Computed example of a mutant assay.
Amino acid sequence: MLDVQQLFRRYNSDLKRYLRRRGASAETAADLTQETFLRLLTASPLGHVDNVQAYIFRTANNLSIDLARRQRLLPFLDDGEEVLDKFMDETPSPERVVVSRQELAILQTALNQVPQTPRNVFLARLDGRTFEEIGRAVGIPTQTAFSQMVRVMMHLRAALDRARE
């Protein structure tokens, strides 16, 4: 299994630099970097990856391409977000609603077990704050904020896995 925290420490700066060279703003590069590692963390078990660095950079590149495509499409529409909302029917089925409510209750119980600081990091990230912003607000290094986020997500994933068994 990949140690996402170690990979984040090793490739975080290089990945942001790579994305900046591809034209992303500093903020967008930071967001794409975080999204890359969150995808890595939440992905199904990968098995053996021969070149982890290439995998990480390919994931970031794909995310930047997806973002560029969305940004190219939306300016041609008067209100692109509104048009996209009309095309997508995201109404879940009744079965999905029941399962989602059960999963939410499991996640809430598991989150209540997490100590206050990691919980605050997790909730701040859900609010869209970067790890750098969270670290400053909570008074911890950026790497620690990321590590705490990873631990909380692993705890929540384990709770869901246990419930599904």
Rank of each mutant, 00 (worst) to 15 (best):
V98H: 05
L32Y: 12
S147I: 01
N62P: 02
D89W: 00
A137R: 07
L19V: 11
T28R: 15
R20K: 14
I65D: 02
T33C: 15
N51W: 05
N51A: 12
A145N: 02
Q148L: 01
D78A: 12
Q6G: 02
Q53H: 12
L40G: 09
E27N: 08
V83M: 14
Q53W: 09
L32N: 12
Q116E: 15
D31R: 15
Q5W: 07
P45M: 01
V152K: 02
T91W: 03
Q143Y: 07
S100M: 10
R72T: 02
F76W: 12
R72H: 11
D127Q: 15
L32D: 09
P118V: 09
Q143W: 04
Q71W: 02
R129N: 09
T142I: 04
R162Y: 03
L77I: 14
A158R: 15
P75N: 03
R69V: 15
H48G: 03
A105T: 10
A68V: 09
A159V: 11
V152M: 09
Q53D: 08
T91S: 06
I106V: 15
Q113G: 07
L107R: 14
L15I: 07
E132F: 02
A124D: 10
Q71I: 06
D50S: 10
A43Y: 02
V52Q: 14
G139C: 08
